[in-house]
């Protein structure tokens, strides 16, 4: 998050410095956005409770979304809120809840303590790198990526929508196929570990017993990641052949 959170304000600064136009409302939105982003980022690294850290991350993401709107990147702002704040942070929270919400961990104690200087050094390095890159103009091949379908005047949400459903229609549809394949793959892997074997199913069918409901199989989903390595460990030594 740090590079993403930091790059937008920097780009904004560079823009303001070069154009010299300091619109008051622009400044206000920019100030609020950066304040939210920085405050959230500080919260993520300083708060004790992991749930509070995750919620601070949401604040940061909202601040960056605000900056995106300020830049005219409406679609990115919406994606930022929906995907990052809406889905990924919720996933973080799921993991935190599963691992135990009561655990308090401080980076200044234990094994992580030696990593603090490294973290600070990397952070400073990234800031310096971004400053250098924003100063230099020809570090790519010379052509900016803004020559794509989204450049020029007009709303980018509309343009993006039109591009996805015309030119990129096939990749869009293939994405849905990809999701179907992923669902099938997940069901295959999960069901094999907990569901009855074919022979048992056949026996159950012969006796007229009710089949195991799909929901019962689906309930095994959260335990699957834990079950897979355990099974690997519990099994017989996997490879007796020579390993290079």
């Amino acid at each position: 998050m740090t590079p993403l959170a930091a790059s937008a304000p920097l780009a904004k600064l560079a823009l303001l410095a070069t154009s010299g136009v300091a619109n008051a409302s622009d400044w206000a939105v920019y100030g609020v956005g950066t304040a939210l982003a920085v405050a959230g980022a500080l919260g993520v690294v300083s708060l004790r409770n992991p749930v509070h850290c995750a919620l601070s991350l949401v604040t940061t993401l909202f601040g960056v979304a605000l900056l995106f709107i300020d830049e005219g990147a409406d679609f990115l702002a919406a994606v930022q809120v929906i995907v990052y704040a809406g889905a990924i942070v919720i996933l973080f929270l799921f993991v935190i809840m599963l691992l135990g919400v009561d655990r308090k961990e401080a980076v200044t104690q234990g094994k992580l303590r030696s990593l603090v200087p490294l973290g600070i050094a990397v952070g400073i390095g990234i800031v310096v790198e971004l400053l250098v890159l924003s100063r230099s103009s020809h570090w790519a091949t010379g052509q900016k990526a803004t020559s794509g379908a989204l450049s020029g005047p007009g709303e980018n949400v509309q343009k993006l929508g039109q591009t996805i459903f015309t030119r990129y229609l096939l990749p869009f549809e293939v994405t849905s196929a990809l999701l179907v394949v992923a669902v099938v793959a997940a069901v295959v892997l999960v069901r094999r570990s907990s569901g009855p074997g074919p022979a048992q199913r056949q026996a159950a069918a012969r006796q007229g017993l009710p089949q195991p409901a799909p929901s019962a199989q689906a309930s095994a989903v959260p335990s699957a990641p834990a079950a897979a390595p355990a099974e690997v460990l519990a099994g017989a030594p996997a490879a007796e052949g020579e390993r290079p």
């Binding site: 990749p171 394949v181 099974e231 490879a239």
Partner: peptide, 29 residues
């Protein structure tokens, strides 16, 4: 983009086929 999506459809199917023999620990591994 199309190449990447094809690659992902292919890969996800292959990962699952590799792990399909669930009673063999080596397969899951």
């Amino acid at each position: 983009i199309t190449l990447f999506l094809g690659l992902e459809v292919l890969s996800i199917s292959l990962y699952t086929m590799t792990a399909y023999h669930r009673r063999r620990a080596a397969s899951g591994e």
